[in-house]
Each structure stands twice: as structure tokens, then as C-alpha cells.
Amino acid sequence: MNGLSKSAMLWSLAGAVAFSGALWAQSSPAPSSTASPAMSAGGDAHFVMAASAAGDTEVIASRMAMTHAQSAKIKSFATSMVRDHAAANDKLRTIAQRNGFTLAGTAMVEQQPDLARLDSLKGADFDKAYADMMRKDHQDAVALFTAESSGGSNGDLKTFATQTLPTLQHHLAMAQTL
């Protein structure tokens, strides 16, 4: 199988997973008053979904950067993103499983076109698009983690957000220099 068909198949699979998740979410009944604390904690549940999807998006885009980028600085940054976001994703997965939260399972649906566009770029064009994406994504991540750190109701998630926030702020500062 050549790289193009493998890439197309991966994107099709990612789209199918995201679509099935959206269908499941639409068909799932609203939590009742007897729902578990994790189910009724909409803010924390939203954080887990958004943070896990964002983390997956960073890893996917950064793995692309490791092969598509021209700049050594971009490739070095991407290596850090894969390492740091994979580690954070693992921690979040453990907390989510322990507390009954559901992870997103794939990149955010709204970012899949950006990821598909990135996958079609090479060299300097890729570098610019990736750097722009990393700046925006890390601004969003800092805001998301700040909100959970100060307003979340689940202690494990608040601790995770508080401990992860300095790394995300560092990523944002690094992304702003790309």
C-alpha cells in the first residue's frame, strides 16, 4: 500500500470514528438524576473530551511535522509535542478511566480538515501551516486547562490541569517563536 492510500485510509477511519461518536452522542439519553458523578459533571466531562481530542490532534499533527517539515526547529518542536502530549494523554486516560469519564477517541472533528490540509503540504508551506496551528491550538489549550484548574469539580482533573498547565504555557511560548 502506498503512502497516499494509507493516509487516505487513516483519514477515512478517523472520520468514521468521529462521525460514529457524534451519532452516539446524539442518540444517547440525557443523564438522569441518578447518573454517576462523572456523568453529571458536565464541565469536567467536557474538559476530558476536549483535552483528549486536543491532545490527539497535537500528536497527529506533530507526527506529520516530523516527516513533512523543512525546518529543523519545527521538527525539534514536533518531537517535543509528541513526547509531551502523549505523556499527558496517558495521564488523562488513567484519570478518565478511574473516574468514569469518556475520552474523545480521535482528533476534534473541526480540526480534521486542518489535519488533512497539513498532510497535503511539505516543506516551508507545511512549516507555516503547522506553526500557525500550534499557536492557535496552544492558546485554546491554555484557556481550557486554566478553566479546569480553577473551576473544575473533580479533584483528579483539577490536579492534572494544574500540573499540565505550565507545560502548555511553555509550548505556547515555543510555538510563538516558530
Results as ranks from 00 to 15, higher is better:
Ala86Asn: 08
Pro31Ile: 14
Val109Trp: 04
Val17Phe: 06
Phe101Gln: 03
Ser40Cys: 06
Phe126Lys: 01
Ser40Leu: 14
Thr57Glu: 15
Ser149Asn: 10
Gln70Glu: 10
Met108Arg: 12
Leu115Cys: 12
Ala45His: 12
Lys6Trp: 01
Ala14Arg: 04
Pro29Cys: 03
Asp132Tyr: 07
Val59Leu: 08
Arg83Cys: 01
Arg135Trp: 07
Thr79Val: 01
Lys122Tyr: 03
Phe145Asp: 05
Leu103Asn: 08
Ala18Leu: 07
Ala50Trp: 00
Trp24Ser: 08
Thr159Trp: 01
Leu103Gln: 13
Lys136Tyr: 05
Asp44Trp: 12
Pro166Glu: 14
Phe19Leu: 09
Ala87His: 03
Leu178Cys: 11
Ala41Asn: 05
Ser71Glu: 03
Ala65Arg: 09
Phe160Cys: 09
Thr146Arg: 08
Thr164Asp: 06
Ala35Phe: 00
Asp90Pro: 00
Ala50Ser: 15
Ser28Cys: 08
Thr102His: 13
His68Ser: 09
Pro166Leu: 14
Gly155Thr: 11
Ser149Tyr: 01
Asp114Trp: 02
Ala50Ile: 01
His46Met: 11
Gly3Arg: 14
Ser33Glu: 14
Ala124Val: 08
Lys91Trp: 00
Asp114Tyr: 04
Lys158Met: 09
Ser32Val: 03
Ala86Thr: 14
Gln163Gly: 09
Lys158Gly: 10
Ala41Lys: 05
Ser33Trp: 00
Ser52Ala: 06
Gly151Pro: 00
Gln97Trp: 08
Gly55Phe: 05
Asn89Asp: 14
Leu168Lys: 12
Leu118Glu: 06
Ala45Lys: 14
Asp44Val: 07
Asp156Val: 04
Ala96Gly: 07
Lys73Asp: 13
Val109His: 02
Leu172Lys: 11
Ala131Asp: 11
Met66Thr: 08
Leu178Glu: 10
Ser7Asn: 03
Gly21Phe: 00
Ala22Trp: 01
Ala8Arg: 06
Lys91Arg: 14
Gly123Leu: 12
Lys128Gly: 03
Ala86Gln: 13
Thr106Lys: 07
Ala41Phe: 10
Val59Asn: 08
Ser5Gln: 11
Ala87Pro: 11
Arg93Gly: 02
Thr164Val: 07
Ser71Ala: 07
Asn99Phe: 02
Thr146Asp: 11
Ala69Trp: 02
Ala18Trp: 03
Gln139Lys: 15
Ala18His: 06
Ala107Ile: 02
Thr57Asp: 15
Ala38His: 06
Phe77Asp: 07
Phe160Leu: 13
Gly152Cys: 02
Asp56His: 08
Leu172Glu: 11
Gln139Met: 08
Glu148Lys: 00
Lys136Ser: 09
Ala16His: 04
Arg135Pro: 01
Leu157Trp: 11
Asp132Gln: 13
Pro113His: 06
Thr94Leu: 03
Gln139Phe: 05
Ala65Val: 03
Met64Thr: 05
Arg135Glu: 04
Ile74Gly: 11
Ala38Val: 05
His68Ala: 04
Gln111Tyr: 11
Gly42Ala: 08
Ile95Asp: 05
Thr164Pro: 00
Ala30Asn: 03
Ser71Met: 01
Leu92Trp: 02
His46Gly: 10
Val48Leu: 10
Gly3Ala: 06
Met39Phe: 10
Pro37Glu: 05
Gln176Ile: 04
Ala61Ser: 15
